[in-house]
Design a binder for these strands. Structure first.
Length: 523
RNA sequence: CGGGAUGUAGCGCAGCUUGGUUAGCGCGCCACGUUCGGGACGUGGAGGCCCCGGGUUCAAAUCCCGGCAUCCCGACCA
């Protein structure tokens, strides 16, 4: 054919290597950025001419999305639309989560749910409607939430005697139930969780990040002592949330305590996980609250202690939402779309049959991979062009793609593409399942390492609030900043994302001396 | 709530200033054929309450009045 040399130049692992072993150069080839030199150019001339260096790798670079560097919010909207994650609902601020977006959420849910149960919590389901009066029982709570409440005043064709609130969160209804369920100290701790939708009226919605209705998980617990409640608050923060977010989703986050300004309405102290997105803005991924005895007092959650005295319980609440999907997109996504960490990906390996005659071989591969415990999908939609399908899986962020075509079958090989690097390799068909499964761990840790490196490069130590300028995290002494400095920063669009001890640990509820404030612009 | 803009095919838009053929274009969709190793091509086709209501006129997507809806810009939140 005469195209061999051109191909070899563009693809270090050309499918017809001179040694004829079909092995290409899997272990030794340097990380060649195959599309770096031809980004965004016009399509290559018809193949068969040993002309330009780029061959088909050139079109591989053609971006379907607005580049991140050009307009990050637009890039985000493009990814959500083109990867088929979600779209706007008919009513303002609502969201339709599409199959791929929901599959990602279901994976997050599964990982969280397993850990929530493993730490002794039981799932329950509480009502969507809450009597308005419940909200009013806790002064801080109503005050914090009333601007974003959706209130039902009419139903069944009549005006309601007492309006109903569509739950913005469930501390109040659950507090009411707890007051009946908790009688003696033997009923404690009471460890509950629910998966639910909640409604908070939003003026500026953004798919996944801020919508009027959203899906989340909310945990609610009651304890006999402050210390137990505090231990629960931090257990969830570290061993449920951070474990999933870091080890499954591959996102490093800062764990710390919120300032009084940013505290949850009704909490004594709020702990948070804050992650840095690729545009240098911070995103709050989850919160865990020590509610002290505020809700116990408001709802009469009391118990008889071992000495027969009546005590108020100590409660906590904690939640993460489908916003995590938004965080995932913005933490890992690149100009070609989503990049899913394998531990999370609904599909870890997609096997793409270039033409019909490759389908049987693909089915065998899918069988081997599935047998090895890899979440695998076959793409045998040969009525659609190869390119369209390749782009689609790239947008969707599937970590590994195996392409099998007629030429591969002849050579006993296939093409492997890893999404984290967008590098193509030709490997033998024999053992390909095992080889691609082995890659998953490397991709997982690579994405986390990349995000960590990006964050540390974007974190700056400063001495004064005035020095806070631009993107990324700014560290400065909380003693020096104070509540006044916090207010000044707010006017310039910056917030104190969280307070952390000098040694990186999470501060105690009342601890205030020697803390570091992490400041950033946030979503 | 204040300011700016937009409603025309599933999506993105043109047409409106200066009223007048059958309301167009791109993408998508359907059929057939050729293709398939990075968003294929050809031919044919389907798809419209021109946001709603009124008015002006022989004639309104186009002009006038009134609604409604959506989007963008200024104070909060998983």
């Amino acid at each position: 054919m005469g195209t061999g040399s051109a191909r070899l130049r563009t693809r270090p692992c050309g499918r017809d290597p001179a040694d004829g072993t079909g092995r290409g150069c899997v272990p030794s080839s340097p990380a060649v950025p195959i599309f770096a030199s031809c980004h965004g150019r016009t399509p290559p001339p018809p193949s068969g001419r040993p002309g330009p260096v780029c061959d088909h790798a050139e079109t591989m670079a053609k971006s379907v999305l607005t580049p991140q560097s050009e307009d990050f919010p637009r890039w985000y909207a493009d990814v959500v639309a083109k990867a088929g994650l979600a779209e706007n609902g008919a009513a303002r601020g609502t969201m339709i989560i599409k199959p791929w977006g929901y599959a990602i959420w279901e994976r997050i849910q599964a990982e969280l749910d397993a850990r929530i149960k493993a730490t002794g919590h039981d799932n329950v389901s509480f009502p969507l409607f809450i009597p308005y009066s419940f909200l009013q029982r806790e002064a801080q709570h109503v005050e914090g939430f009333s601007p974003e409440l959706a209130v039902v005043t009419h139903a069944g064709g009549e005006e309601l005697a007492e309006p109903l609130v569509v739950r913005p969160t469930s501390e109040t209804v659950i507090g009411d139930a707890m007051s009946r369920w908790v009688q003696g100290h033997r009923d404690l701790p009471l460890l509950l969780n629910q998966w639910a939708n909640v409604v908070r009226w939003e003026l500026r919605p953004r798919l996944f990040l801020r919508t009027t209705e959203f899906l989340w998980q909310e945990g609610h617990t009651a304890h006999a002592t402050f210390d137990e409640a505090q231990a629960e608050t931090l257990l969830i923060l570290h061993h449920v949330y951070d474990d999933v977010i870091r080890n499954v989703m591959g996102i490093p986050s800062l764990l710390g305590r919120k300032t009084d300004q940013e505290r949850f309405a009704g909490a004594d102290s709020t702990y948070t996980l804050e992650a840095l997105m690729r545009d240098g803005k911070a995103l709050q991924l989850g919160t865990s609250h020590n509610l002290g005895q505020n809700f116990a007092k408001a709802f009469g959650i009391t118990y008889s202690d071992a000495d027969g005295g009546q005590q108020h319980a100590w409660t906590t609440s904690w939640g993460v939402s489908a916003r995590l999907v938004g965080g995932l997109i913005m933490a890992h996504g690149d100009d070609r779309g989503l990049r899913l960490p394998p531990a999370l990906a609904p599909v870890q390996v997609v096997v793409l049959a270039v033409k019909d005659e490759a389908i049987a071989a693909c089915e065998r591969l899918v069988g081997e991979l599935t047998h090895a415990g890899v979440r695998t999908r076959l793409d045998g939609r040969t009525s659609q062009s190869f390119g369209r399908r390749a782009v689609e899986w790239e947008l969707k962020g599937v970590p590994v793609r195996l392409e099998v075509g007629p030429r591969d079958l002849e050579a006993g090989s296939l093409t492997l593409v890893r999404r984290d690097r967008d590098r193509k390799e030709t490997i033998p068909l024999e053992g390909a399942a095992a080889a691609s499964a082995d890659l998953l761990d490397a991709i997982q840790s690579g994405l986390l390492a990349e995000a960590e490196a990006r964050r540390s490069a974007a974190t700056t130590d400063v001495d004064t609030a005035a020095a806070v300028e631009g993107a990324g995290f700014f560290r400065l002494p909380w003693d020096r900043l104070g509540t006044g400095g916090e207010a000044d920063l707010a006017e310039r669009g910056y917030t104190v994302r969280c307070l952390v001890r000098e040694d990186g640990a999470v501060p105690a509820p009342q601890e205030n001396d020697g803390l570091i404030a992490y400041v950033a612009r946030a979503y």
